[in-house]
Design a protein around this nucleic acid. Structure first.
Lengths: 146, 146
DNA sequence: CGTGGAGGTGGGAAAAAGTGGGAGAGATTA
DNA sequence: TAATCTCTCCCACTTTTTCCCACCTCCACG
């Protein structure tokens, strides 16, 4: 998968158009959507989801509180959706509400998966975290050189 | 069974509509409902219930207090219900009250079984545990890489 | 500057899913 | 025994979803 930050739009029927450049990175026409961390959705190609979710499930049991939480919060909400002929996916209602998706969305490419944000939440997230980011970058500075 | 998070509704007669996607995963028209952990109901297809309950019974004895508790709390309340032609099940009153089911419910697919929540309890559960979840995710970060 | 193609957008029609309620059987109570 | 209530089954109506097609816009190229 490639990186990139693209504007994309959700129509009245809950269909989200995946920009052609991102779409080109997905083989087949099925993808997995689930709740991400920080009010965005995570978008996986099936192989990536399989390996990720199996790692996650492998380390959990229904009789442990933390495991149930992780399963309910990350695994359970995951749904397959198909990319239609026009390159759109239908975002299931509960996920749409979780990420507060409106017409204007942002899709972020992160190599192994993508993130879908409502444009306003994404903007707010970046604004709120700029200071934290600079700190994190500062820490990295000692270890990573350009 | 698949994963997924779906809204569904309980009507005045105590019938809960299982969304078509989830229903498609159940072979036959009989399922088992029982008390789950954290104010939700657990919903098993018969084969899964058989293997789960047998494991549970096999590892417990009537002469131990904890075992009796587990059996009374998980095994005893289990009831078979039929899926009707319209894809609904009747939720037995004691279970309905336990999970505090109102009109708005949520059904969660967790691969081997499903969970049925009242929408408000589910929302409350997620809200209350978001911080805990982020901590847990942070910890996993060290072990699970994408 | 026109034309063709790819990418993007919207909406209509058919099919599927979901909702509500009525009728009848069986149970319960006066 | 009659009257009433509850539960179940079934049917019909409504809403949602899905699939498909038509059109628009922008860019590349002749």
């Amino acid at each position: 998968m490639i990186t990139g930050e693209f504007r994309c739009s959700l129509d009245e029927k809950g269909r989200l158009l995946i920009p052609a450049r991102m779409r080109a990175e997905v083989t087949g026409n099925v993808v997995i959507l689930t709740r991400g961390v920080e009010n965005c959705l995570w978008f996986f190609p099936p192989e990536e989801w399989k390996s990720f979710s199996e790692k996650l499930i492998g380390s959990t049991s229904l009789f442990q509180e933390e495991s149930r939480l992780i399963q309910r919060r990350m695994i359970a909400p995951a749904q397959e959706t198909e990319i239609d002929k026009a390159g759109r996916i239908v975002v299931p209602p509960t996920l749409r509400e979780y990420a507060d998706l409106k017409k204007e969305c942002i899709i972020l490419g992160l190599k192994k998966y993508m993130e879908i944000w409502s444009e306003s939440s994404y903007q707010a997230y970046l604004d709120e975290n700029e200071a934290k980011f600079k700190e994190a970058a500062e820490k990295l500075g000692g270890r990573i050189t350009l």
